[in-house]
Design a protein around this nucleic acid. Structure first.
Lengths: 223, 223, 223, 223
DNA sequence: CATGAATGAGTGTTCATTCAT
DNA sequence: TATGAATGAACACTCATTCAT
């Protein structure tokens, strides 16, 4: 796995990652960059709900009004930060997954990558699993769109597996995708909430076994 | 599914309650009862975060100060409501599950019951999956304790299955429990968020197949 | 003419005025009364737009939040003040006008009373002619309703005059009413704006002559 | 009615302008022109009070700072727009009125023209009757001067009528002028506020009758 | 047991204004 | 001549909380 960014300098690395298709460098105004970085920092210590514009502005060394200027309201700011995180992580996941051979292995890699993502960045997990979900506007945000695309892409991997005969065809790929992606969330959520972090290796292993092979004992790989 | 409890007078332990209706147990002061009912009502229409003490008091036909008197802060009130919901639902689930024969069938029933619970009461799902999770105090509340007990009880069912040879023994029962319980949540969360509700029958069927038998095609029940 | 109130103690006098139909005394909470009085006072010195909640609260010796509690937003407060003014003035006008004999004399009295109202209370004039008109919500306020009723009542006087043969029947009573009521406004507005106050007697005289007899020289009262 | 002026390049005096188009007179900097036009546009949709510099700048495709550079504060900008409107309308009115024969006919034409002006341009009416009046600085603006001159000119027409024996001499021409000009305003104001527009012909007719002949029935033109 | 009245402290937001380039 | 960036100061509004009755 790559994508282990400092969490603050995301934009720079984003440039590096996308060697091709680098349209114009989008020269973000310094104030805006400072604001986003400041929020990322603060999120490591506090709940988003308890962070005030004053704190953000203070941490960024910037005027409060500037937040409004660039983001309009505090939620947009959060969505923007989330988007930057996703931009940087999801691309890495895609690359890694596609490097695997065959749908089942791809899913195995996917599970592993997702767990790593959540494990490597508590802030991302917190935003994604805790902060944005009860905000209706989130589901119209760019960040959410990114995730929808990602989710579709996962479903297509499963479809591929069904067509190639590796994955069962008696259940809708959508349901399988939902179960796989969904089962990881609550477990990672618990890390976030209780500030614990179990061994990702072992966890990934368990997930893969259960989801790919089921929990029943008397099942065996044919051959 | 049964679980038809008074809904308001549910402070005693599940055991005692289940014996019989017990009409006049703890004579909750009428104001307190009105407040709890009012919040339940309001939760059907609004997000908890956007509900003010004033609204609750208004809906309950009660003075604002009274909420403060009984619950100290608004979160305690929410936890109380949640506890009442859980009290009424979880007991029903336990009874249904224990009626099934054999661990695998118990899990099947469990999955089915949970989906039914979420599906039958949007408010419960909303509170549980959306509102309380980012509130640290929740994890010290009675409601959370109830869920911990429930969760332990599920793990014991799995353990039983392992001992009886029905369930695989190469994965920790805790992980299996987490995967099963966890995978249901995000899917139900989506109902709540997008105001949709897919067919519980089909969904339960899919979940059972995936979680019990895995998604790989070339797996077969031995024998 | 009566209705020359201190401008602050309106509610008390209102009680006195309406000897009959005094339903329940409506015991306004003291804080609310203080707020309204404070605004009335401030309006003598400043434009409403430039008055902040802080100033009002300060002048009333009351907390800012209380304004919100009672009036919801600052405009409602203004409308409420206006309503109290109108309540106290319009009733007096009606009584005086109805005491006159015959429609033409009633109109004469009306014109005279209106000019007196505007002249005797700069604050009323300011609110009515300057502050509320560009606020769309005003036209749904109670204060506006009061004026509509008044306006209808004036039209009925004119109608009466038409029926009795005192007033011409070749022009719609509505138009006549609008011209009469309307022509007074801009002149009084000028008093407000330029802090001048010409002789009400002479002004009333001119208005009556023009509006009742026209400006053409070669017109004569028949007989 | 004519008055079809460029609408943007109208800074010179009415006299000079009317001679011919005069294409390049004062070469207004393009940014300034764009700003003024943008505000005119915005005023068609929003209340001036609710228009921000940001919106104006946005609509003009210009930087916010530029407005500040040219107009210092937003009110000056409004006054400038108003002046341009008045420049273009008032001249037309003067020409039309002076073409009429005899003072009474001139007044008749005046009333008709004013109603037409208000009716044909909601924005002008809005600014004049709603937006500028509660702004003290307005009464020192060029726009206000223009109106003062116009008002004086109307009074002179009336004076002329008095001297020629067409208009009564027992009321001050100033009062008559005020009543005539003033009575039109509130009626037109109502169009603006309620987005209605009654028939100008009928309205003008009513106004003329009332103001010139009075509302009393038993008045007759002598002779 | 319940209420009416009042408070205090904070928050997001607004926007005119400035200035270096 | 025009712009991008940033600022400062205020302001309306919110609401949990308190307390005398």
């Amino acid at each position: 796995m790559r994508n282990s960014l400092p969490g603050v300098l995301v934009t720079k690395t984003a440039e590096k990652r996308s060697l091709q298709a680098w349209p114009k460098a989008v020269p973000q105004p310094p104030g805006r960059v400072k604001i986003v970085s400041a929020l990322k920092l603060l999120l490591k210590e506090k709940e988003f709900t308890n962070i005030t514009w004053g704190e953000i502005a203070g941490a960024a060394g910037v005027n409060e009004g500037l937040i409004y200027k660039y983001f309009g309201n505090s939620r947009n700011l959060l969505f923007q930060v989330l988007k930057e995180y996703l931009d940087s992580y999801l691309h890495g996941v895609r690359v890694d997954v596609e490097a695997a051979s065959g749908p089942i292995n791809k899913l195995r890699t996917l599970i592993r990558c997702l767990i790593d993502c959540y494990a490597s960045d508590r802030v991302l997990a917190k935003i994604l699993l805790l902060e944005v979900r009860n905000v209706p506007e989130y589901f119209e945000s760019d960040a959410y769109l990114l995730l929808r695309d990602f989710s579709t892409w996962v479903r297509d991997i499963i479809k591929e597996g069904v067509e190639q005969g590796e994955i069962r065809d008696d259940i809708s790929p959508d349901y399988m995708r939902d179960t796989i992606l969904g089962s990881i969330e609550p477990v990672c959520l618990r890390w976030v909430i209780f500030h614990k972090k179990p061994d990702p290796d072992q966890l990934a292993q368990s997930f893969c076994t259960i989801l790919l092979d089921g929990i029943r004992k008397d099942l065996k790989v044919e051959q």
